[in-house]
Amino acid sequence: MGRKKIIVTLVLTCLTLAVFSQQKDSVKVHLNHYTLTIGAGWTHYIDNLENGDKDIQKNFAGVSFKFYWEPEYRLSLGLESGYYQLFKVKGQLTDNTTVEVSRTVLPLLLLARMRIVDNVYLGAGLGLAILTNKSSGNNMKIVTKTTSLSNFELSGAYVYPLSKHWLVGGEVKMFHFGSLADWMYSVQATCAIKL
């Protein structure tokens, strides 16, 4: 239920901004350009494991890369990738053998982003993700990969232009990876360059 509350709060906040935002737009934007954004920050896995999550680590650093095409004032289209660790758990196989299991994800999403008010953006993305499970211990390492086809991302960003080409900002985003039913959110500092 906690997870649902977070999702609903985030979605409703975004929705309210989108639906009731003012039409006034005072920012003069150079049309039809490309932007490359790099983000880095904190990620948190929303633990919905039903077993094996004793001593789970849920907080890690993560990075993201985005490429946007901004053809007009308000809407941008883009691609996003990145690298995140979702969790790490330890389990006791025998009295003297432990095993460590971790899961990382590499998303590849198509993004749509909309400027709501000056410097504030809301975005959503859909696409693929490759989830990698690593299990180590007992002198062996097992790596399995799962390709998840039904994934989405919701994000909100503040972008401040430092110069004609450089922008900095912050972004909050939430991911859902459908195939393994994993949820995570991330808070990142971003740096962008207009090409």
């Binding site: 094996g52 999550d53 299991v101 899961r103 499970n133 007992n138 097992i142 990969k145 393994l180």
Partner: peptide
């Protein structure tokens, strides 16, 4: 062929079920 939430409670293992050792499956998969 894979560990999934259709057959198992959500746990830390995922992917090809035959890639894991029996100890790992019996410890982590319910």
């Amino acid at each position: 062929p894979d560990i999934n939430t259709r057959l198992t409670q959500k746990g830390p293992l995922a992917g090809d079920v035959s890639a894991y050792t029996w100890k790992q499956l019996s410890t982590f998969v319910t």
